[in-house]
Amino acid sequence: MTHKLRAEYGPQGAAGGVKSWHVVRDEDLSTALCGRTMPDDAETRPEQEWGTGLRCCQQCGSLYMHETPHLQGSHPYS
């Protein structure tokens, strides 16, 4: 399963900047993992940008971590 990041904007829309980034599945770009409906014109970024300092939805992040496979040997205790 692959994912994307989608932007949530504040009351000023895209002109006011991104309020938070949400994680969506590639199969449904309109619904974030947290259940929020994402607008069709929301900026989209690759999932590799999750965890790079972007302000992300905590609930989406938690659910994303459960859906994302971890590579064996990538953790010092594995």
Score class of each variant (00 low, 15 high):
R55P: 01
K19G: 03
P76D: 06
E67G: 01
M1D: 02
E43S: 14
P11D: 15
P39Q: 00
R25F: 02
E47K: 05
Q12K: 09
L71M: 06
C34R: 02
P11H: 07
T44N: 02
P46S: 14
R25S: 04
S20N: 08
G53N: 05
T68Q: 11
T52G: 00
Q58D: 15
R36C: 02
T68L: 11
M38L: 15
R55G: 00
E43P: 01
K4V: 13
E47D: 10
L63T: 09
L33C: 05
H22E: 07
M38I: 15
Y64I: 03
T52I: 01
D26P: 01
M1S: 10
A42E: 05
H75I: 10
S78A: 09
G13I: 06
T52N: 09
S78F: 12
G35Y: 03
G35P: 02
S78V: 05
S74W: 04
T44A: 13
V18M: 05
H66I: 04
P11I: 05
Q59K: 14
M65W: 12
G35A: 05
K4L: 14
C60F: 03
G53S: 04
Q72V: 11
P46K: 11
G16K: 05
S74T: 11
T52K: 09
T68S: 11
M1R: 12
Q72K: 08
P69C: 07
L63F: 11
T31E: 03
C60G: 07
W21V: 11
Q12W: 06
V24C: 09
H75S: 09
S74F: 04
P11M: 06
S78K: 07
E27S: 14
R6F: 00
C60A: 05
G17T: 13
W50L: 10
H22F: 09
G17I: 11
P39E: 04
H3W: 15
P69Q: 08
A15Q: 10
G35W: 03
V18Y: 10
P39H: 01
C56W: 00
T44C: 12
S78R: 05
T2D: 02
Y9I: 05
T37E: 07
L5Y: 08
A42T: 13
T31I: 11
L33W: 08
R55F: 02
P76G: 12
G53V: 07
G10S: 14
H75G: 01
H75T: 08
L71A: 03
G16R: 10
E43K: 12
H22A: 09
R36Q: 13
D26A: 13
H70M: 14
T2E: 08
Q59H: 12
L71V: 08
V23F: 01
P76Y: 12
L63V: 09
G51R: 08
R45P: 00
L29I: 03
V24W: 04
D28K: 06
S74Q: 13
K4Q: 15
P11F: 10
V23Y: 03
R36H: 14
D40K: 15
E27K: 11
H75V: 04
C34E: 10
T52L: 09
D28Y: 01
C34T: 08
P69H: 07
L71H: 07
V24P: 04
T2W: 00
Q12V: 00
H3A: 13
W21T: 13
P69D: 08
D40G: 15
H75W: 01
S78W: 11
M38K: 14
V24R: 00
Q48K: 11
P76L: 12
Y77E: 03
R6E: 01
A7Q: 14
S78G: 04
C34Q: 08
S74I: 02
